[in-house]
Design a protein around this nucleic acid. Structure first.
Length: 155
DNA sequence: GCCAACGTTGGC
DNA sequence: GCCAACGTTGGC
């Protein structure tokens, strides 16, 4: 099983939103590296740290799980969507996504500052300067430790 | 294929 | 709101 970190701006879609809806298609990823993670590497059952970016504070807010297999991001075909991509076709879609399911919400967000100060978690991509990728692979060790800090029993 | 200009991300 | 970092675009 692979582990991940997925970023979302809580003003747009937060861990509380995921808890409310239960399951959500991860639309709007328009970066090839992040897309490759979703259609090539993610498998149903994979677990992800749900990270709040552009937040007060930014940090890990909970856990989500990959459900189902990748399929084309429908927003790329919708001219009214902000994620519309005129260069993509239904025959040959450019952008793919998976659905995420709610697993857990931490009692308190683990702030980025805490992650950076942690001797292990400071190694995570999200702690490195200039890393803007919205989906990051995470080691099983780092995942477990983040769960522990979040007060959540490791899965 | 190079690279300057531009746009976006995201911490602060 | 600022700005560093980085990805993408497009002229050549």
């Amino acid at each position: 099983m692979n582990h991940w970190l997925i970023k979302s701006e809580p003003d747009v879609f937060s861990i509380a939103d995921l808890e409310r809806v239960g399951r959500e298609p991860w639309t709007g990823v328009r970066n090839y590296q992040a897309r490759n993670f979703m259609w090539r590497d993610m498998k149903p059952g994979d677990l992800a740290l749900f990270y709040h970016s552009n937040a007060k504070p930014s940090g890990i807010a909970g856990i989500a799980k990959v459900v189902g297999n990748p399929y084309p991001d429908f927003t790329q075909f919708d001219p009214k969507s902000e994620y519309f991509d005129p260069k993509s076709t239904r025959e040959n879609p450019r952008w793919w996504l998976v659905d995420f399911e709610f697993v857990a919400r931490f009692n308190e967000i683990i702030p980025l500052d805490t992650l950076k100060q942690d001797p292990e978690l400071c190694e995570m991509m999200v702690c490195q300067r200039g890393t803007r990728l919205s989906i990051n692979p995470v080691s099983a060790t780092h995942f477990k430790r983040a769960c522990k800090l979040g007060g959540f029993k490791a899965l």
